[in-house]
Amino acid sequence: MSDAPAIEFAGVSRWYGDTVAVADVSFAVGPGVTGLLGHNGAGKSTTLKLCAGFTSPSAGAVRIFGVEPRRNPAVYERVGVVPDQSPPWPFLTAQEVVELCARLHRVADPAAAADRALETVGLDDVAGRKVGGFSHGMRQRVKLAQALAHDPDLLLLDEPLNGLDPAQRREIIAVLHRLGDEGRTVIVSSHVLHEVERMAPQVLVLVSGHLVAEGQTSAIRQLISERPRTVRVAAGGDGRALAGALVDGGVVDAVRFDDGTMEFETGDVERFSRALPALARTTDTLVRRVEPVGDDLESVYAYLHERARGAGR
């Protein structure tokens, strides 16, 4: 059991009627912090629910430390879960919530464990206040504290930075880094790329339920930055001289003229941004406006999805 990966997905699919939430996903995650990245509805929460044993796969197998969590509740002694959108019991104090969860995880001294966990998330000074009166950010930290109280080997966090201010985010990210450095396995979901970059050196990218990329976060970032881009340019005159120069120089792969503007497709946007002013000068073209097209996160995910399909995933 101890040699098994903390989390292992083998051909896992989860569907609800006609809707496929997770499609034939396989991965294994070991110690360190791993980000689960994807837009809303990509299947991140379902994936985390499968990891946590809150739902069963329609096909395939999910194992935590080598066992199926739904059949082996004892494995939860090693697992901490921070669910999304589920604040703890509002009529309990923060101390009571964390102590209760520690007790249910069979911690020897639940009160001391709760004290430590609340101090870790910076809530020790309000431990005696009821959770119902807390801000969203404070409730997030109570959720994290209850997941940390029993010192788990595996931590599953669904959008843990939601509702936190920048200082609180920094503190929580530091806690996650420390846990990862200690050799624990931390899975953290987010739909914000730069947030995942700050939290996790490893990343799994989900798009429409498919695992479209996995590996070092920096490599995924590089992949994303190197993807083909479309740039729209509004120029004085018809701009054909400028377009011709860009094509002749191999700066762009294609150009499309559309109602007084040009859309260039390029595989190297940095080179394009350097070449454009120089070629505008040499072709005596007045450039009025330059703007990226489809540079939002959805487009990035769509690109990764297309790329994964092209690779036969």
């Binding site: 946590a52 879960v81 669910p83 604040p87 919530v97 969860c101 249910l104």
Partner: peptide, 15 residues
């Protein structure tokens, strides 16, 4: 309904 059942289920207590 409110999701607090997750905190009970994610424990080693027998179902």
């Amino acid at each position: 309904e409110d999701g607090t059942i997750y905190y009970l289920v994610a424990t080693p207590q027998s179902r």
